[in-house]
Amino acid sequence: DLTPEQQSLLHYIMDSYNRQCIPQYITRKLLQEDFSAEENFLLLTEMATSHVQVLVEFTKKLPGFQTLDHEDQIALLKGSAVEAMFLRSAEIFNRKMPHGHTDLLEERIRNSGMSDDYITPMFNFYKSLEELKMTQEEYSLLTAVVILTPDRQYIKDKESVEKLQEPLLEVLQKLCQVQHPENPQHFARLLGRLTELRTFNHHHAEMLMSWRVN
């Protein structure tokens, strides 16, 4: 079982995570029917920017984050933003959004001018996460774990980051045992998805470049 300290850490992370919301004026634009390729590009860019802003707000609240060196804070966020966004998108596609919105967003992404070589693996990844039947607690903790990854480029004080990540990993591991007793491999599978996320991170720059060129 989770200790009382772990329980309160979990509730705190969940609460901060649930406050992460893209403003409605942006999501409303998604539902407007007519859109040119250029408007589509601008909307997806605006959503991504807003995504980063709410991610930073969530990150600021992670226990201990603000005690880290300022440049290390930026390096952590730069290193994890793409991965955290993919996780968040997976959650939105798999659960959070009303059904019609998800279809529209998928259509817009597929018509965005990005190559299918990038889009197909992305939707496959969303599907592979869906099969894990992750709870919102797991999404929130996994996102925090992703952000507080010590071995990102340019981190000077890896040890301090490790110290912040460890308790979150412990809670996540226990939670997996409690919520998926039928599947003892659940925690290992979640960590496996993190490796996949890293691949997306590496391809993201090329993807944006090809998108812009198109």
Partner: peptide, 21 residues
């Protein structure tokens, strides 16, 4: 507009809490 900013700019501004500037 925000769409012209790079990732690092967005992060720095959001960390400082002055994104609207």
């Amino acid at each position: 507009p925000a769409s012209n900013l790079g990732l690092e700019d967005i992060i720095r501004k959001a960390l400082m809490g002055n994104f609207d500037d």
